[in-house]
Write a protein that binds this DNA or RNA. Structure first.
Lengths: 112, 112
DNA sequence: CCATGATTTCGATGTTTGTCGAATCAGGGT
DNA sequence: ACCCTGATTCGACAAACATCGAAATCATGG
């Protein structure tokens, strides 16, 4: 339980995930999406809950998407978002100090 | 299991923690500190492991400290850092999607 | 096939952040 | 006292970011 703990490249990928969570708006967005465990949530429902403009929250959703934390699916007029539990779990696991000591062992494809 | 999930003010506080993790250098720093579970690690040992300058990693350590994720203690010439497990656990718990749906229930004092 | 509503993309702008070198602070030895 | 080494603070600068309004895209319904 010494040494490496986290390689440079691993850190880059994981940091992207955490950075995506490092904004109050995004954190709230994610929590609102996650609150619909299993189910999905419409963008229109999200924009209504925020003071900032629609383009802004769309941008934040894109950041979450690029980080691989959520996925979007267009169905008719509306776009629905849902969380990627494995991605959240990977980040969560990293913060269990025990996991830190045992090195990295999680993967989740970050969006192209 | 609906609704609120995360208030604005809660989100601001928590985002500060995640933002601190949103940089590869800081993530690696934290992992190196955490890898010494219980024990602490000297700054000199950290600076040696990075390409960036000492002021830079000192700055990153300050960010982690201000976020309440690590604590520092000067002992003689050297300064030692150790993680604050409860703070990491709080963030980790938030990412368990189940925790998201049940609202917020964690606290850790962010440094003054 | 145009009008309307929903969402994303495009430019622009002010703020924050990562990084460095130089200066400064804090102890320990000589 | 003096310097030497380790660590932080300061000042500066380029890159990245959050945010907006306007324009573009997309899908549905008249």
């Amino acid at each position: 339980m010494v040494a490496e703990s986290l390689t440079e490249t691993d850190a880059v990928g994981l940091a992207k995930g955490f950075k995506a969570l490092g904004d109050p708006a995004r954190l709230r967005l994610l929590s609102m999406i996650a609150a619909r465990a299993g189910d999905e949530v419409c963008v229109c429902e999200l924009t209504d809950a925020f003071t900032q403009s629609a383009p802004t929250i769309s941008h934040h959703l894109k950041v979450l998407r690029d980080a691989g934390l959520v996925t979007s699916e267009r169905r008719g007029t509306w776009v629905y978002y849902r969380v990627v539990p494995s991605a959240l779990a990977a980040l969560s696991r990293l913060l269990d100090t025990s996991a830190m000591t045992t090195g990295v062992n999680m993967e989740w494809t970050t969006a192209p």
